[in-house]
């Protein structure tokens, strides 16, 4: 008899737990305005990434198209994947001395793990992390970028290497 009562009780208890579960899902069904879906391409205008979000490495340029990279190569050393290559060139300064300055700061986005070590290590604060995350391209070679803009020069107050 005792086991029979337990049997009946177990049926009702089981049904009750099922109903509690249905209550939870039902609550969300009938409150559709609480939906959490974000419709991505539509909300592109409103979508603001956090300021520290690491989307890609960029080089900061001011309004005179000047950057502060002196081509010291510390970022290249600090990069764990070899996604930064620095190509420098020699020029003659006004007073006739030979000087090495940066020619191209090449950045392979496809190899980058966005670990922030290059930005952290840069002594002159030339690099930063950009917020752009839409990196899809049709051709892999487009992921290799030159960070210093064309015709840009090194800012005056930057310490020489």
């Amino acid at each position: 008899m005792k086991s029979f009562i337990e049997y009946i009780v177990s049926i009702f208890k089981g049904l009750w737990t099922l109903l509690i579960g249905m209550k939870v899902t039902g609550k969300y069904f009938f409150t559709p305005w609480k939906n959490v879906t974000q419709q991505y391409p539509e909300n592109r205008e409103k979508l603001v990434m956090f300021e520290r979000f690491r989307g890609e490495v960029i080089m900061l340029h001011n309004e005179n198209n000047e950057h502060s990279c002196n081509g010291c190569g510390i970022c290249e050393i600090n990069c764990p994947n070899g996604s930064i290559e620095i190509i420098s060139k020699s020029i003659l300064t006004a007073d006739g001395k030979k000087k090495r300055i940066i020619d191209q700061h090449i950045y392979h986005l496809g190899m980058c793990t966005l670990c922030n070590l290059c930005v952290k290590a840069c002594p002159s604060g030339a690099l930063a992390m950009g917020q752009n995350f839409e990196h899809a391209v049709w051709d892999r070679s487009l992921l290799t970028k030159v960070l210093n803009q064309e015709g840009s020069t090194i800012a005056e107050n930057v310490k020489e290497e």
Partner: peptide
């Protein structure tokens, strides 16, 4: 219906 249960669209 399933989306609404799961707070989706």
């Amino acid at each position: 219906v399933c989306a609404a249960f799961q707070q989706r669209l």
